[in-house]
């Protein structure tokens, strides 16, 4: 009986926490996601900078990140209003 009550309290606590988190995050979700996206775009620019003719001393290391960022690159050029990849030798779709 006691354990039953304890789990009920725990359940309630988790529910309350979830509700509070919603209340905390809902108003700012968009602003934060936008800020994050801007940072990600900058990071992507660094990773792909060599392809765009901007020399990058760390390109040896960033090269292996390129496949990981491929999907995001696709999202990016779609978001910028370009249907196909703008880079001649780098096609993602």
């Amino acid at each position: 009986m006691k354990i039953h009550k304890l789990t009920a309290i725990k359940d309630w606590w988790q529910k309350a926490n979830h509700f509070a988190e919603e209340a905390y995050n809902a108003p700012y979700r968009a602003a934060i996601a936008r800020a994050k996206r801007e940072q990600d775009d900058l990071f992507m620019l660094l990773v792909f900078s060599d392809l765009m003719g901007v020399p990058n001393p760390a390109s040896y290391y960033t090269l292996e990140l390129q496949p990981l960022l491929l999907e995001r690159f696709h999202d990016w050029h779609m978001r910028m209003g370009m249907e196909k990849s703008p880079l001649d030798h780098f096609k993602c779709c």
């Binding site: 509700f19 919603e22 209340a23 809902a26 979700r29 968009a30 996601a33 936008r34």
Partner: peptide
């Protein structure tokens, strides 16, 4: 998941 998120009416 960013701008457009269906939200519980009490939270909203």
């Amino acid at each position: 998941g960013v701008d457009f998120v269906p939200t519980n009416k009490y939270v909203l």
